[in-house]
């Protein structure tokens, strides 16, 4: 009985949350087209996003490329298909692994950063102070951050992909005597627009949900310093979850396009 009540409460909480998040997203779309535009702040935020996550994305990408190739080698050799390595690794990195890993890193690093930053601005009344001094804080703080993550994530994905491919090529070069040039040529030959376009579009959406969730959690943070911690923490959980939801939808939609 207790359990059922608790479950009911959790489910209700889940749907309230989804509703509020959609409302927040709606407000973003209403406000981001209206002047004045905060270009300077947008640039600053883009820089922040890149600065916070680039190194992590590069290191992780390199390791993933390396590991993926090392682990696939024995199986491919067994089937005598080791020459397919660039095609296989290239496609899985560009279509799926690169965007998702980058997005998860950014969910951990950027969504939490934004959640904590806006959360502490909220509890120390800095957001109120902006409001009374005639600057719309939603525009200045939220719109710029969501745009920044949306624009920067695809860029980070490209860097992540390239480094992962480099990691993979390195293994092939050392273990299989494939030159870097041959490796990259094979990868780019194998990739089609059908691989690149969905991956890029998906990355924009990843960036959007990461910025959206971070801002939403921070902007609605509860009073007190504990509220800031909760905002940062729940932002990571929710953003990571939404990254997978977006990924699922993206795969589903691009599958429909293939069928056509």
């Amino acid at each position: 009985m207790e359990l059922a009540l608790q479950a009911k409460k959790n489910i209700k909480h889940f749907f309230t949350e989804i509703g509020e998040l959609s409302h927040f997203a709606g407000r973003f779309f209403r406000e981001f087209l209206k002047p004045p535009f905060e270009f300077k702040e947008l640039l600053r935020q883009c820089y922040q996003v890149g600065n916070r996550s680039l190194v992590l994305v590069l290191v992780t990408g390199f390791i993933i490329g390396l590991v993926l190739t090392l682990q696939s080698r024995p199986t491919l050799i067994q089937f005598g298909a080791v020459s397919m390595m660039p095609n296989m690794v290239g496609i899985s990195i560009v279509r799926e692994i690169g965007p998702v890993i980058t997005a998860l890193i950014c969910a951990g690093r950027i969504a939490s950063g934004i959640g904590a930053e806006l959360g502490s601005m909220k509890v120390t009344e800095q957001i109120d102070a902006m409001e009374v001094s005639g600057t719309n804080p939603f525009k200045y703080l939220v719109v710029t951050r969501i745009l920044a993550t949306t624009l920067m994530l695809p860029l980070l994905v490209v860097f992540g992909d390239l480094v992962a491919l480099y990691g993979s090529a390195l293994v092939e070069n050392l273990k299989g005597d494939v030159s870097f040039q041959l490796y990259f040529n094979t990868v780019f030959d194998a990739l089609s627009y059908g691989d690149l376009v969905p991956a890029t579009v998906k990355s924009f959406f990843f960036g959007f949900v990461i910025g959206l969730v971070g801002c939403y959690k921070g902007y609605h943070s509860k009073k007190g310093t504990a509220g800031v911690g909760i905002a940062a923490n729940t932002a990571v959980v929710m953003a990571s979850l939404l990254v997978f939801v977006v990924d699922f939808i993206a795969v589903f939609v691009s599958d429909i396009f293939y069928e056509l």
Binding site: S120, M121, T124, E125, Q126, D128, A129, M130
Partner: peptide, 8 residues
């Protein structure tokens, strides 16, 4: 504001 609320 109560806690000064400077933009940090």
């Amino acid at each position: 504001f109560q806690g000064s609320a400077l933009y940090d």
